[in-house]
């Protein structure tokens, strides 16, 4: 019974509540009540899709990571734009990236980051969650891409989740 009244995913509930306040014009009594109901109801209903509690330990590291990714997204689109407009053919490659992260949430954050940043799109995760298939638009060597991703994105994520 107590379980039914709690918030199993506090972060999700907080995000849902804030989003609802933004969507409804201005904070009012009604929007707060409805926001609380939604913040309680939606995590309860989607309970089955979240098998374990998120293992966020160092949340304060998140803003620095987000800023770095935003900066890289802008830089990435310049390099992709240059490739699209230049007449030479791209050198695409499929790369198997060995994952060192273990937490599913961390892997999906890494995969999203890879898709948004320089010349790479993550295509698939292997069933044992140890390899990530990446498609690079213009890769000179596989190892270079793997090293860049590991040093720039995977290391900060590993610190955040362990």
């Amino acid at each position: 019974m107590f379980d039914r009244l709690s918030f199993p995913q506090p972060w999700l509930s907080l995000i849902l509540f804030t989003t609802w306040q933004i969507l409804s014009d201005g904070v009012s009594g009604g929007s707060v009540v409805l926001g609380l109901i939604l913040a309680w109801l939606i995590p309860q209903m989607t309970h089955g899709f979240w098998p374990e509690r998120p293992a966020f330990v160092k949340t304060w590291r998140m803003p620095a990571y987000i800023l770095r990714v935003l900066k890289d997204i802008v830089a990435a689109s310049f390099s992709v734009a240059w490739l699209i407009l230049s007449p030479r053919k791209p050198r695409p490659a499929f790369i198997n990236y060995p994952l060192k992260l273990e937490h599913p949430l961390a892997i999906s954050i890494l995969a999203s980051t890879i898709s948004l940043t320089p010349g790479t799109v993550s295509a698939d995760v292997s069933d044992d969650k140890k390899t990530l298939l990446i498609h690079a638009l213009d890769a000179t060597s596989d190892q270079e891409v793997i090293d860049t991703i590991h040093n720039r994105y995977e290391k900060p994520l590993m610190e955040m989740f362990q």
């Binding site: 053919k89 050198r91 695409p92 490659a93 499929f94 790369i95 198997n96 995969a111 999203s112 980051t113 890879i114 898709s115 948004l116 799109v121 993550s122 295509a123 698939d124 292997s126 298939l133 498609h135 890769a139 596989d142």
Partner: peptide, 29 residues
């Protein structure tokens, strides 16, 4: 959402087996 839909489409494309450029290094799964 952009990376999620890109990922879903890449998976669908691998399932269908769309043609890749001949100079592509490596193979899709």
């Amino acid at each position: 959402t952009a990376p999620v839909s890109a990922n879903m489409l890449a998976k669908a494309a691998m399932h269908i087996g769309v043609n890749t450029l001949e100079s592509t290094k490596g193979n899709p799964w």
